[in-house]
Amino acid sequence: MSHGSPTRTVLVTGAAGGMCRGINARLAAAGHTVLCADLSLEAAESAAEAVRAAGGRAEAFAVDVADADSVSALADAVHERAGDIDVLVNAAGILDRKYLADHDAHSFERTLDINLVGPFRMIQTFAPELVRKGWGRIINISSIAGVTGYPYPSYSASKAGLSNLTRSLVIDFWGTGVTVNSICPGVVDTPMVIQQVRDQVPRKVPTEQIVNPDEIGGLALFLMSDDARNINGADLLIDGGATRYFQLFDRP
């Protein structure tokens, strides 16, 4: 890996998703071991196999981040098969395309339980081993929806909460060698992005480019490097300038 950093063991939740395929690939190409965790073991194994097919090292695990018992079982399985982790990437999440009137309390809470409480469970479970070793990286995959707002309130609220959780946790990891940061992507080239959103990129994104999942992986790699040791509690936007544009003015 660049910067002379050692190889690490990285646990990625939501690893079978389109964005995480890029993250997994970049991490593995740099020599890191990727522990692919997803809701179904079959999906996780598919993600791990893609890493292995490219010459990387990967293992597959099932986890439901909305279930405390499942997260505990994941920890047991990871420690038995791979030992301690060095980096936790919280990427598991859902986008519930419901407007305010379409939501009920259960559907709103479900999004928060997966997108916000899920990462909290993962951090609370795996952080002690990072602290014990005196080095660790926690990378939360948030969204510009948590910065600007978004038409789907459960999603934007969950991502705003995740970014604020990131900022708040720097106190808990004071002096431990563990940093915690958020990556906030804009429109990412994954199957989740509907065509209507893709069509708006030239009008809404100053670079006129959709974000490639590989770029998210590159940013995660940088956060793991020694050069990023003093980046802590940050929301790192990777959105082509879309957030700044939304905040200022409409295109004439």
Rank of each mutant, 00 (worst) to 15 (best):
F120V: 13
F126V: 14
D113T: 12
P119V: 02
P153Y: 08
W135M: 08
R137N: 11
E129S: 15
V147N: 02
N115Y: 01
G118P: 01
I139M: 06
G146V: 07
W135D: 10
A127V: 15
I114T: 09
W135A: 12
V117G: 01
T111L: 01
I141T: 04
L130T: 12
S107R: 11
I144C: 07
I138P: 15
Y150F: 10
L116D: 05
Y155S: 07
R121V: 13
S107E: 11
I141W: 01
R137E: 07
A127P: 05
P151T: 14
R137W: 04
G118H: 06
L130Q: 07
A145P: 00
S154T: 12
I114G: 01
E109V: 11
I144N: 02
T111E: 06
M122N: 07
P119Q: 04
I114K: 01
E129Q: 15
I139H: 03
I141S: 01
I141A: 00
I144F: 00
V131D: 11
F126M: 12
S143K: 01
R110L: 05
P153G: 05
V147Y: 02
K133Q: 15
Y150P: 05
F126Y: 08
T111M: 05
P128V: 15
P151A: 12
N140P: 00
W135H: 10
Y155H: 06
Y150C: 01
I138W: 05
G146T: 03
L112S: 02
R132E: 12
E109R: 12
D113N: 11
G134A: 14
V117A: 05
R132Y: 01
Y155L: 06
I138R: 06
M122S: 07
D113Q: 09
R110T: 10
A127N: 13
W135V: 09
F126C: 13
G136T: 13
N115P: 02
R137G: 05
E109C: 08
Y150N: 03
S143M: 00
E129W: 09
Y152S: 04
P128R: 12
M122Y: 07
R110F: 01
I123M: 14
I138A: 08
